[in-house]
């Protein structure tokens, strides 16, 4: 369980996260949605101790993220931000192997090798495993980064816009993989998503943010409604139910 209590954060004059309190239960896929600048990424970064928490507290499984040693937390929670630039020239396999660092501190065990191979297979990266990251397409690189955090094998996986740079085929495959990881391995996957229909079709729970606050939260059927979407994004949407999943049409 992740608990956020009265967390706030401002950049200069602007309050980006405004006194947020929320409890995210363990297990399942949770999507964070909201307009640009609503504070989704900042909240995610605070939960994952990439940004300091100037006011309020964040605990993961009872561990306060600001006081718990980084290496302990790294075995319970992993985070991938958007725009991952890397100066080191790494092969895909080397990058993924770093996911095992919190467990083996750089000395790979047989078990670690197993994890690495499994993740490479899951993300269909076998063909490019020996290639350098800077030689890959944006989509391949994105999958390699996701592979690294999955290889970390933590109970909580936080991903900021993981579908960036992915085509429709790979985006669907990625969401299915998250679903499977949550169901089969009992992990908690927390995603910042822009595509509300992906959020609707794959999440157990959706959290909608607006102006630095939690505006709505609940299962997809409570969130994917014309009224909530108007409130969060300021657009009119038609909601259709297809194969038991809600789909919002907002293109006109």
């Amino acid at each position: 369980m992740i608990e956020v209590r009265n967390a706030s954060k401002s950049y200069g004059e602007t309050l980006v996260v405004d006194d947020v309190s929320i409890t995210l239960p363990a297990g399942g896929v949770i999507s964070l949605i909201g307009a640009n600048g609503a504070g989704k990424s900042t909240l995610l970064s605070m939960i994952s101790r990439l940004l300091p928490v100037p006011a309020g507290t964040v605990t993961v499984e009872g561990m306060d993220v600001t006081t718990t040693p980084g290496d302990v937390l790294a075995r319970h929670l992993s985070i991938l931000r958007q725009d991952n630039q890397m100066t080191a020239r790494l092969t895909v396999r080397d990058l993924i192997a770093f996911g095992r660092y919190p467990h083996s501190k750089g000395r790979l065990t047989v078990e670690d090798q197993g994890h690495i191979e499994r993740v490479i297979r899951y993300l269909e990266l076998e063909a490019v495993a020996h290639r350098f990251l800077d030689e890959l397409s944006g989509g391949q690189r994105q999958r390699a980064f996701i592979a690294m955090v999955l290889c970390q094998d933590t109970d909580y996986v936080l991903l900021d816009e993981p579908l960036n740079n992915l085509d429709v085929k790979h985006a669907v495959a990625m969401m299915k993989l998250f679903r499977r990881t949550a169901d089969e391995f009992r992990k908690t996957i927390i995603l910042v998503l822009h595509d509300i229909n992906f959020a609707s079709c794959y999440s157990d729970r959706i959290v909608a943010m607006r102006n630095g606050r939690i505006a709505h939260q609940g299962p997809p059927e409570d969130i994917i409604t014309p009224c909530v979407i108007r409130d969060v994004y300021g657009v009119e949407a038609n909601i259709h139910e297809i194969d038991g999943k809600r789909v919002a049409l907002y293109f006109r």
Partner: peptide, 15 residues
């Protein structure tokens, strides 16, 4: 690990 950048290093539990 540090060469991977700040975010990645923190994610991997390095102080």
């Amino acid at each position: 690990v540090l060469a991977l950048g700040r975010d990645a290093a923190i994610n991997l539990g390095v102080d």
